[in-house]
Nucleic acid binder design. Structure first.
Lengths: 146, 146
DNA sequence: ATAATAAAAGACTAAAATGTCTTTTATTAT
DNA sequence: ATAATAAAAGACATTTTAGTCTTTTATTAT
């Protein structure tokens, strides 16, 4: 079990992939190519992208030459938007020991330690933009598969 | 979904509970009281503690006046031992985007960012000892339930 | 020795996450 | 208009995680 659900991992990787594959030339990229490019099961990824599309995080068009893409606003969005959409806000705000009532006035033993870590995760994901790695992804310096 | 599995959350909370409930007087505490004290399903917790017992992270004796306890060595162990035993090492070393081959020479886009966060989690859990919160747990300053 | 106690072990069930398949709808090129 | 394309939608199937129940084994007090 990682920090994120499998669904969320695929979501982030696919959005990175769509970003670098369609940036600039305003092209589209199909589900098959995305699934190959990030090494994910195609039908499962399809469901994930349908959801991201409904939520406006990625854009899509049907039919010939159709596929997924990102408009310029989407390229500027922070990764935290994807994580919040797919996995919810628990990773940013939830108690590390799973206590519903954990808070400043009713803290678990690790309350402050986890607050610190959660804040760092939140900050990192908020500062990182979807389109940020396009150059490195295009020249192969960064990997999205295996 | 939190940072840890539900199993691991219960494991950590129960070990904290056993620690503060049995420290000093070398007493024992039964599964029923532990489950109540950390607000967890009793039979599920029983399985978890059986596992921790097999691994030597907690101690136990059967029969009347039996129950779970922690010897002085166990009280000094870091929380990271519990997490590694229950959830494995992925949280300390795994790729944030789920890539098996992700590494310094084949990094995912968030490789360095995640390395930083994972190290902080590891350090925090390694520095925190099981018996560390006994005083605050005994006087009710810290909570393990709800 | 026996009865009572409490954890260990193992089989079982339920729910959630992950993954697959088929049909429908929208778009485009002819 | 029609055929081809590609995503959307929704019904399934599988696996993993979470949780339950019953029987066995070890310990202790009588």
């Amino acid at each position: 079990m990682g920090i994120f659900s499998k669904t969320c991992e695929y979501a982030i990787r696919s959005v990175f992939f769509i970003a670098h594959r369609t940036a600039g030339q305003s092209g589209r990229v199909g589900i098959k190519e995305i699934a190959l490019g990030i090494d994910s099961p195609e039908p499962f990824l399809a469901k994930i992208l349908q959801d991201l599309s409904r939520r406006g995080i990625v854009q899509s068009t049907k039919g010939p030459n159709g596929g997924f893409y990102l408009d310029s606003a989407s390229l500027e969005r922070p990764l935290s938007d994807i994580v919040a959409a797919v996995d919810g806000n628990d990773i940013f705000y939830g108690c590390g020991l799973g206590l519903k009532q954990c808070s400043e006035i009713n803290p678990c033993p690790l309350h402050n330690e986890f607050k610190d870590i959660r804040n760092k995760i939140h900050l990192m994901l908020h500062e990182t933009k979807i389109g940020e790695f396009n150059a490195e992804l295009m020249n192969g310096m960064l990997s999205l598969k295996k």
